[in-house]
Simulated scan of single mutants.
Amino acid sequence: MNLLNTSFERVSYSVQIKTSLLFECALGIAMITYPKLHDRLEMTRVELDELKTGLSSELKAELDYCQEHNTWKMLLQLLHFKDFSSPLEFYQFLRSLSESELKYYALPFVDIMQENNRLAASKGDKKAENDLVLSCKGHAFFPQMIHFVCSSRQSELLNHLQAILDGWYNEVILPKREWTGGVLERDAREKQRISQLESPHKTVLKAAGIDYKPEQGIADVILIPHVAYRPWTIQADLPAAKVFYYPVSDSSLMKSKDPFEPSGQLVQKLKAIGDEKRLRILKLLVKKELTLKEVTALVGMGKTTVHHHLTLLKAAGLVHVKGSVYKAAGDSMKGIEKEIFTFLHKET
């Protein structure tokens, strides 16, 4: 068959870098209500238990409700409506919405082909609701979340979203607001500098560790740094945009100019390669791109353990992932000897 292709194929995308304590709130809520990952966070079990113990009974009740219905995802969707300057501004926005508007923004974006169903479902159309559910049948929680949003009373949804964000903001964010805000701002500035020097593709790669290539319908990639969910990158979809909530770099966590204190990036690399199992995995990936299943079979370890090692290698910038395929970062180890030499011989 002869084909004359006159379609537009996207070869790039623009990168936006945003930072907000409200996104940090929503991601902290997401983290605390997903216990399956609690053993694979940078936060230790002791730190996690101390955090949970210190929460009020009212916030714990809202978190239980969130865990059952995945309302953290609704918060994230709603927070993308505009750049909110404070929790109060966000609450005022929520209260200004009609019932159908609130449900529309709370329903997950599946893909552009389902936007009519998303809109109709938010207005009470049962067929549209069921069609939307069927379109994401294989998703871990979208079907249940869609039914929950569509069947919820506006007042119940509003009160919960405000209560859980307000509780987490006041009890977890405010006590460390200056430190957390400083870390997020430093990291956003760091990524802005990278974006001015590198292509959008390399900016996403360096920030999120994701080898994200341009795809049809995606004009923008939004990068949002977080502390709460380190070392995980969370991916989400919006109309015409891809979102990566990525872990701040170690260097952003460190404010000290102490000449005897190595850079966070150097320490993270050395920790990542200072383990024989991770070195073995890295060598395998230098030789060939592999899926998690393939790496697991080759190293003879459990899937959860291998995934943990890959996450640490990815956080150090030594491994990239595209879809389900992992590969070694081509230039990740170049210059590490020079980095070590420079640090050791830096004037004090």
Score class of each variant (00 low, 15 high):
residue 236 A to E: 07
residue 118 R to G: 12
residue 211 D to H: 09
residue 209 G to Y: 07
residue 238 L to C: 08
residue 152 S to V: 12
residue 165 L to P: 00
residue 129 E to V: 05
residue 159 N to Q: 14
residue 170 N to K: 15
residue 154 Q to R: 11
residue 119 L to W: 13
residue 129 E to I: 06
residue 197 L to A: 12
residue 126 K to L: 12
residue 170 N to E: 14
residue 119 L to I: 05
residue 223 L to I: 11
residue 213 K to N: 11
residue 135 S to D: 02
residue 222 I to G: 08
residue 138 G to R: 15
residue 234 I to L: 08
residue 222 I to V: 15
residue 172 V to I: 14
residue 230 R to I: 13
residue 154 Q to I: 01
residue 125 D to N: 15
residue 117 N to F: 15
residue 251 S to F: 00
residue 215 E to Q: 13
residue 176 K to Y: 00
residue 169 Y to K: 10
residue 216 Q to R: 10
residue 230 R to P: 00
residue 222 I to Y: 10
residue 176 K to V: 02
residue 162 Q to A: 11
residue 129 E to Y: 04
residue 210 I to T: 00
residue 130 N to Y: 03
residue 180 T to Y: 12
residue 193 R to Y: 06
residue 140 A to N: 12
residue 190 E to H: 15
residue 195 S to F: 13
residue 127 K to M: 07
residue 170 N to I: 11
residue 217 G to C: 08
residue 246 Y to Q: 06
residue 229 Y to Q: 06
residue 242 K to V: 03
residue 204 V to P: 04
residue 178 E to G: 01
residue 149 V to F: 04
residue 226 H to R: 03
residue 225 P to V: 01
residue 183 V to T: 07
residue 143 P to G: 02
residue 146 I to A: 02
residue 217 G to H: 02
residue 195 S to I: 05
residue 121 A to G: 06
residue 131 D to V: 06
residue 147 H to E: 15
residue 220 D to R: 00
residue 235 Q to I: 05
residue 171 E to F: 10
residue 212 Y to V: 07
residue 155 S to F: 04
residue 242 K to C: 01
residue 171 E to T: 11
residue 202 K to W: 08
residue 220 D to A: 00
residue 249 S to H: 09
residue 232 W to F: 13
residue 238 L to G: 08
residue 155 S to V: 13
residue 236 A to S: 14
residue 120 A to I: 06
residue 228 A to N: 08
residue 226 H to C: 13
residue 237 D to C: 11
residue 174 L to Y: 03
residue 134 L to V: 04
residue 162 Q to F: 13
residue 210 I to P: 00
residue 129 E to M: 14
residue 252 S to N: 01
residue 124 G to P: 13
residue 197 L to K: 05
residue 181 G to K: 09
residue 221 V to M: 11
residue 198 E to N: 07
residue 117 N to R: 02
residue 125 D to H: 07
residue 183 V to F: 03
residue 176 K to H: 07
residue 120 A to H: 08
residue 179 W to G: 13
residue 194 I to P: 09
residue 199 S to R: 03
residue 226 H to P: 14
residue 144 Q to K: 02
residue 131 D to N: 12
residue 175 P to C: 05
residue 200 P to I: 01
residue 194 I to N: 10
